[in-house]
Nucleic acid binder design. Structure first.
Length: 152
DNA sequence: GCCAACGTTGGC
DNA sequence: GCCAACGTTGGC
Protein backbone atom coordinates (compact mmCIF):
# COMPACT_ATOMS: atom_id res chain seq x y z
CA UNK A 1 0.00 0.00 0.00
CA UNK A 2 1.41 3.35 -1.03
CA UNK A 3 1.62 6.47 1.10
CA UNK A 4 0.95 10.05 0.06
CA UNK A 5 0.80 13.65 1.18
CA UNK A 6 -1.99 16.03 0.22
CA UNK A 7 -1.93 19.77 0.79
CA UNK A 8 -4.83 21.97 1.75
CA UNK A 9 -4.95 25.56 2.84
CA UNK A 10 -6.61 25.41 6.26
CA UNK A 11 -8.41 28.67 5.56
CA UNK A 12 -10.38 26.87 2.88
CA UNK A 13 -10.37 23.33 4.30
CA UNK A 14 -8.57 22.18 7.46
CA UNK A 15 -8.21 18.81 9.18
CA UNK A 16 -10.96 19.89 11.59
CA UNK A 17 -13.33 20.25 8.63
CA UNK A 18 -12.47 16.74 7.48
CA UNK A 19 -12.95 15.39 11.01
CA UNK A 20 -16.40 17.01 11.03
CA UNK A 21 -17.38 15.88 7.51
CA UNK A 22 -15.93 12.36 7.74
CA UNK A 23 -15.28 12.24 4.01
CA UNK A 24 -14.77 14.90 1.36
CA UNK A 25 -14.04 15.22 -2.33
CA UNK A 26 -10.54 16.22 -3.38
CA UNK A 27 -11.05 18.20 -6.57
CA UNK A 28 -9.62 21.14 -8.48
CA UNK A 29 -6.18 19.65 -9.04
CA UNK A 30 -4.92 21.22 -12.26
CA UNK A 31 -1.33 20.06 -12.39
CA UNK A 32 -0.45 17.01 -14.45
CA UNK A 33 2.09 15.61 -12.03
CA UNK A 34 -0.31 15.91 -9.10
CA UNK A 35 -3.10 14.45 -11.23
CA UNK A 36 -0.97 11.42 -12.04
CA UNK A 37 -0.46 10.83 -8.33
CA UNK A 38 -4.23 11.10 -7.80
CA UNK A 39 -4.74 8.42 -10.43
CA UNK A 40 -2.22 6.17 -8.70
CA UNK A 41 -3.92 6.38 -5.32
CA UNK A 42 -5.68 3.16 -4.33
CA UNK A 43 -8.62 2.53 -2.05
CA UNK A 44 -7.39 2.49 1.54
CA UNK A 45 -4.08 4.22 0.80
CA UNK A 46 -3.12 6.60 3.60
CA UNK A 47 -2.14 10.23 3.08
CA UNK A 48 -0.65 12.84 5.36
CA UNK A 49 -2.98 15.84 5.54
CA UNK A 50 -0.77 18.91 5.21
CA UNK A 51 -1.76 22.49 6.01
CA UNK A 52 -0.12 24.81 3.47
CA UNK A 53 0.01 28.60 3.50
CA UNK A 54 -0.60 28.40 7.21
CA UNK A 55 0.99 29.73 10.39
CA UNK A 56 2.68 27.47 10.79
CA UNK A 57 2.43 25.05 7.90
CA UNK A 58 2.75 21.36 8.68
CA UNK A 59 1.19 17.92 8.94
CA UNK A 60 -2.11 18.01 10.83
CA UNK A 61 -3.42 14.49 10.41
CA UNK A 62 -4.02 11.42 8.30
CA UNK A 63 -6.70 10.55 5.77
CA UNK A 64 -7.34 7.57 3.52
CA UNK A 65 -8.62 7.09 -0.01
CA UNK A 66 -12.36 6.39 0.18
CA UNK A 67 -12.90 6.41 -3.59
CA UNK A 68 -10.36 6.09 -6.39
CA UNK A 69 -9.95 8.64 -9.18
CA UNK A 70 -13.00 9.58 -11.23
CA UNK A 71 -13.67 12.55 -13.54
CA UNK A 72 -13.68 15.94 -11.83
CA UNK A 73 -16.96 17.55 -12.95
CA UNK A 74 -15.71 21.07 -12.24
CA UNK A 75 -13.61 20.93 -15.43
CA UNK A 76 -16.84 21.03 -17.49
CA UNK A 77 -18.53 23.75 -15.42
CA UNK A 78 -18.09 27.21 -17.01
CA UNK A 79 -18.99 28.82 -13.69
CA UNK A 80 -16.33 26.94 -11.77
CA UNK A 81 -12.96 28.43 -10.95
CA UNK A 82 -11.58 25.06 -12.10
CA UNK A 83 -13.25 25.17 -15.51
CA UNK A 84 -11.09 23.87 -18.37
CA UNK A 85 -12.48 24.84 -21.77
CA UNK A 86 -10.28 22.25 -23.48
CA UNK A 87 -11.54 19.30 -21.42
CA UNK A 88 -14.03 17.04 -23.22
CA UNK A 89 -16.61 14.90 -21.36
CA UNK A 90 -15.69 11.98 -23.63
CA UNK A 91 -12.06 12.37 -22.62
CA UNK A 92 -11.83 13.98 -19.16
CA UNK A 93 -8.51 15.59 -18.41
CA UNK A 94 -8.83 16.03 -14.63
CA UNK A 95 -9.86 13.67 -11.86
CA UNK A 96 -10.82 13.87 -8.24
CA UNK A 97 -10.82 11.36 -5.39
CA UNK A 98 -12.74 11.06 -2.14
CA UNK A 99 -10.86 10.93 1.16
CA UNK A 100 -11.92 9.90 4.64
CA UNK A 101 -10.65 11.24 7.95
CA UNK A 102 -8.47 8.75 9.82
CA UNK A 103 -6.89 10.72 12.61
CA UNK A 104 -6.03 14.20 13.74
CA UNK A 105 -2.51 14.08 15.15
CA UNK A 106 -2.26 15.09 18.80
CA UNK A 107 0.96 16.92 17.92
CA UNK A 108 0.87 19.16 14.83
CA UNK A 109 4.17 18.51 13.01
CA UNK A 110 5.42 21.84 11.66
CA UNK A 111 7.43 22.20 8.47
CA UNK A 112 10.35 23.38 10.62
CA UNK A 113 10.24 20.08 12.53
CA UNK A 114 10.06 18.09 9.30
CA UNK A 115 13.08 19.97 7.95
CA UNK A 116 15.03 19.48 11.17
CA UNK A 117 14.50 15.71 11.24
CA UNK A 118 17.44 13.78 9.82
CA UNK A 119 15.18 10.82 8.98
CA UNK A 120 13.10 12.95 6.62
CA UNK A 121 15.86 14.16 4.31
CA UNK A 122 14.64 13.89 0.73
CA UNK A 123 10.95 14.09 1.54
CA UNK A 124 9.28 16.15 -1.18
CA UNK A 125 7.48 18.62 1.05
CA UNK A 126 10.77 19.48 2.75
CA UNK A 127 12.34 20.50 -0.56
CA UNK A 128 12.76 24.22 -1.03
CA UNK A 129 10.12 25.57 -3.38
CA UNK A 130 8.08 22.39 -3.38
CA UNK A 131 4.70 23.28 -4.86
CA UNK A 132 3.09 19.95 -5.74
CA UNK A 133 -0.25 19.59 -3.97
CA UNK A 134 -0.16 15.77 -4.08
CA UNK A 135 3.07 13.85 -3.57
CA UNK A 136 4.19 10.29 -2.89
CA UNK A 137 5.74 9.57 0.51
CA UNK A 138 7.96 6.58 1.32
CA UNK A 139 6.76 4.13 3.97
CA UNK A 140 9.68 5.09 6.19
CA UNK A 141 8.98 8.82 5.94
CA UNK A 142 5.28 8.24 6.53
CA UNK A 143 5.95 6.20 9.66
CA UNK A 144 8.42 8.75 10.93
CA UNK A 145 6.00 11.68 10.53
CA UNK A 146 3.31 9.67 12.32
CA UNK A 147 5.69 8.95 15.18
CA UNK A 148 6.44 12.66 15.48
CA UNK A 149 2.76 13.54 15.40
CA UNK A 150 1.75 11.00 18.01
CA UNK A 151 4.46 11.80 20.55
CA UNK A 152 4.73 14.87 22.63
C1' DG B 1 4.20 41.82 0.85
C1' DC B 2 8.30 39.74 -1.05
C1' DC B 3 10.43 36.44 -3.57
C1' DA B 4 12.05 31.76 -5.17
C1' DA B 5 10.60 27.89 -7.75
C1' DC B 6 8.68 26.25 -11.55
C1' DG B 7 4.67 25.07 -14.72
C1' DT B 8 2.34 27.08 -18.74
C1' DT B 9 1.75 29.92 -22.71
C1' DG B 10 2.75 31.94 -26.91
C1' DG B 11 5.83 34.27 -30.31
C1' DC B 12 9.05 33.13 -33.51
C1' DG C 1 11.67 23.42 -30.48
C1' DC C 2 13.50 27.40 -27.94
C1' DC C 3 12.88 30.64 -24.63
C1' DA C 4 11.01 34.85 -22.51
C1' DA C 5 6.99 36.39 -20.20
C1' DC C 6 3.67 35.39 -17.14
C1' DG C 7 0.93 33.14 -13.46
C1' DT C 8 0.65 30.33 -9.34
C1' DT C 9 2.21 28.20 -5.14
C1' DG C 10 3.66 28.70 -0.80
C1' DG C 11 7.40 29.78 2.72
C1' DC C 12 8.83 33.45 5.31
Amino acid sequence: MACWLVKSEPESYAIADLARDGTTTWEGVRNYQARNFLKAMKLGDRALFYHSNATPSGVAGVCEVAREAYPDPTQFDPDSAYHDADAKPADPRWVRIDVRHVETLPHFVTLAELKADAALVGMEVVRKGSRLSVTAVSDAHFARVLALGRSD
